[in-house]
């Protein structure tokens, strides 16, 4: 069998197995609770006086884009390869003739796809809840814009947290530092430094897709931000794949 064919089959096998594992993990209860919370908060905010589609945009930005996206990517991504190395179940993958770089890409794709699915569900629950209690127009367009940004966000955050989980024994600490210290504190610094976060770049991309809510105040070129996110993700996945190939699995 040609190596390419074997690697493609292996990639699909790891992808399906890992995606299923992530989706069926008992963390799904945590995701259900989050979706209900987002739905409840969005529904409540829709009933407030003066609430409009801008309010929905700001709530989705606050709850999903800047909080749930990085937190879920951290929880799912940092533990993905790390847990398998710790419980040694990764042995099946690393003793198969599948190129380890291919396996790493399969892990990454599974993580990204699962995150996108879960975040889309949460966005739908939140958006539909808002629309149920508020007659403002533009809801479906806003949800579509957010879903697109969340896809790009999942691509970026997954690449970051997966590689952190690969190289660090306690990846959660660095991940939490990034999400809550770097993104929140450094991201609040005015000027160029404050723009060096995935969150800011995603908001710039979002501002190119919707002009609702506070996105109207975000400055920057959405195309440049999109390219920056994609280039960052590709670099991190390539680095992760290389490190995985070189890693000793004791």
């Amino acid at each position: 069998m040609m190596d390419l064919e074997r690697n493609l089959l292996g990639l699909m096998t790891v992808f399906k197995f890992e995606a299923r594992k992530l989706l069926l993990h008992k963390r799904w209860m945590f995701v259900v609770v989050l979706a209900i919370l987002v739905g409840a908060v969005m529904g409540y905010s829709a009933t407030r006086q003066g609430a409009d589609i801008g309010t929905a945009s700001d709530m989705l930005n606050l709850l999903v884009l800047t909080f749930l996206l990085p937190v879920m990517a951290l929880i799912y991504g940092a533990s993905m390869v790390r847990n398998e190395m710790d419980d040694r179940s990764i042995i099946q993958v690393v003793t198969s003739p599948l190129d380890r770089r291919t396996s790493y890409i399969a892990y990454y794709l599974a993580l990204t796809v699962v995150l996108v699915i879960l975040l889309i569900i949460i966005t739908l629950v939140g958006g539909l809840s808002f629309m149920a209690f508020n007659g403002a127009s533009g809801g479906p367009e806003l949800m579509l814009a957010f879903m697109a940004v969340l896809c790009i966000g999942a691509i970026a955050y997954s690449s970051l947290f997966l590689v952190i989980g690969l190289v660090m024994k306690q990846p959660l600490y660095l991940g939490l530092f990034y999400v809550f210290v770097w993104e929140y504190f450094i991201g609040s610094v005015p000027g160029a430094v404050g723009e060096l976060t995935i969150r800011h770049q995603l908001q710039v991309i979002a501002s190119g897709l919707t002009d609702k809510g506070s996105f109207v105040n975000i400055s920057g070129d959405p195309t440049t931000s999109l390219l920056a996110m994609l280039v960052m993700a590709v670099i991190l996945v390539v680095v992760g794949a290389f490190l995985f190939r070189e890693k000793e699995i004791a």
Binding site: E5, R6, G10, M12, T13, Q92, S96, P97
Partner: peptide, 18 residues
Amino acid sequence: PGEITGREYLRYVGGLHG
């Protein structure tokens, strides 16, 4: 993995081996 059947596990292993 405890949550899958023996047959599913072997299919997974087979996929890894092309």
